[in-house]
């Protein structure tokens, strides 16, 4: 068992070759392929055409949670044992802005990271991989039935793949 469904794995050197292959695959009706690239690339993003990542909602909600916690904590703890310090009001909003701000950033950053982990985990698909895809090659893996593999293979070759192999 190889841990991933059978299919075709193509390796590309040229960026436009890879994006051409992606577009043609989409025209042929393939949706669940995986594209590997060593760097984030805008052209690949456009070709694949995902929606904007939902991670931003995590950042926003994390930040809002942080600002609320910050003000709530500092105010509640001040009033829980009221003690006048330096002649200032017990619960002083002006300095507590700092606490609220720091927690906004802290919660926002942690939530963002949690969002990446969560969404990457949810959108992960088992797929064949090659170590060169983190070095200098762009990879496309298309899971498909054995009888269709040759068609996909020739598609990739004609759009300029450097190497295509069938994965059982």
């Amino acid at each position: 068992m190889s841990g991933h469904p059978g299919g075709v794995l193509g390796a590309f050197r040229q960026i436009d070759a890879a994006t051409d292959a992606v577009r043609e695959l989409k025209e042929m009706g393939y949706e669940d392929f995986t594209v590997y690239s060593p760097v984030p690339n805008h052209e690949i993003e456009l070709a694949v055409g995902h929606k904007v990542s939902p991670v931003r909602m995590w950042t926003l909600l994390g930040g809002l949670a942080g600002v609320t916690t910050g003000f709530w904590m500092s105010l509640w703890m001040s009033y829980d044992w009221p003690l006048v310090v330096g002649g200032k009001p017990i619960g002083s909003v002006i300095p507590y802005v700092v606490i609220a701000f720091e927690l906004t950033v802290l919660f926002g950053a942690i939530a963002t990271l949690a969002g990446v982990v969560f969404h990457s985990w949810r959108t992960a698909k088992p797929a064949a991989f090659d170590g060169r895809f983190t070095d200098d090659m762009i990879g496309i893996f298309v899971p498909c039935r054995p009888d269709r593999r040759n068609a996909v293979k020739s598609l990739m070759e004609s759009s300029g793949a450097a190497e295509v192999r069938l994965e059982a």
């Binding site: 590997y36 690239s37 984030p40 993003e45 694949v48 995902h50 990542s53 969404h119 992960a124 698909k125």
Partner: peptide, 8 residues
């Protein structure tokens, strides 16, 4: 470095 990973 999959498309989904980079997206997020």
């Amino acid at each position: 470095g999959t498309d989904q990973q980079w997206r997020h």
